[in-house]
Amino acid sequence: MPNKLLFVAVLMLYSTSLLQALQSTLVRYLPCWGMGADCHVSLLSISENATFMVTNANDWHCILRLYRPDYHNDTEILSELEWMLALEKNSIIRIPHIYPTVYGELLTICEIASIRWRIVCFEYLSGSTPSLNAASLEWFEKLGILTAQLHIQSYTWQKPLGFYRKHWTYETMASPQAYFGDWRQVRNLHSTAYRLLERCDYLLKKRLYRLSRQRENYILLHADLRTANLLIDSEYLAVIDFDDCGFSWKALDFANAVSFMEDHPLMPELQQAWLSGYATVTYPSKELISSIELFVMMRRMQLMGWIVTHAETPTAQKLGESHTLGTINLAENFLTKPF
């Protein structure tokens, strides 16, 4: 399990000076992928990882991801890449190609500011992220199709020796030891709201322990199919960022797809569209359908912890108190459900 203190410290390292150091170092590392002096490196985004875009004189692009320290180890990152290679080989879904170095390596190591960073080069995919409106139902149905295809491949794929990814359970998502942070550390949480969320947390834990971990229910998931990781083009819906892929129950893929919009009025329609698309590929099990609300609530609690440990990110700053208030309302509703 990651060291939580170091985890928070690393997140706060994304200062302007560090980002400049990362960018200048990447320029020196470009020859590792056969890229030359005509290439320009620019910051694309920061969240868990620092992501940069490389552009050459012919306007060709690729993506360099620097994995944040103390989250995944090398084995976990290589396992992520192995799954992506398997998906690409079987043409299951549209995902970015991984560019190996000129030495045939998928993962490159460098040291910046006395921290060990891991770098991977990905294909740049064009397209736009989906927006949330009435037209969302069409692409959410497509997402249901895509998710079912991923689930079938995951279930049937023979994992290579040494394959290892994290498990997304109550302990790793909502407990005080959660990977992304502890929701209990949210600032200015009123005692009444805290007790309400504690009751919700207890029910989540109780219900999760009842779920089966049989192989057909508990599989390797993308585990972050939210809109920021989807790209719509005229011909396809592509998926990027497998950084959080791990083992969990199938319904978590829907819950993560509606991250930060769990209280949107379109939620019932989005869920139905997703299930309709899923059913065109394989019938969703009774357990998958019945546990969707459970995982939507647990994901929301997980994101409260994420905001605590990612306070400097644009997403966390934008959400702030409104996300906490929305979570409290969702928890009140969740506790009235007859489970």
Rank of each mutant, 00 (worst) to 15 (best):
E141N: 08
P100M: 02
W183V: 08
A86C: 12
I119E: 01
K206W: 12
T172W: 08
Q177S: 12
I119Q: 06
Y209D: 15
Y194T: 11
I98T: 04
T169R: 01
L66G: 07
Q185T: 13
H97Q: 11
F180D: 05
I119P: 09
A193G: 11
E198Q: 15
H190I: 08
Y164C: 14
I95T: 00
P100K: 02
A193Q: 14
M173L: 15
S128H: 15
L85G: 01
A193N: 12
T108V: 14
L81K: 00
T172I: 10
V102Y: 04
L204D: 00
V120F: 11
T75E: 12
Y124I: 01
T75N: 15
D70F: 04
E141A: 12
I77Q: 03
E141H: 08
D70C: 15
R118T: 05
T108M: 08
K142N: 10
R68K: 11
E111D: 15
R199Y: 06
I98Y: 04
C200A: 08
S131Q: 10
T172E: 10
L189Y: 07
L143I: 07
I115D: 11
Q149Y: 03
Q153L: 09
Y194E: 03
L146V: 06
Q149C: 07
E105G: 11
Y71T: 09
H190W: 10
T101F: 02
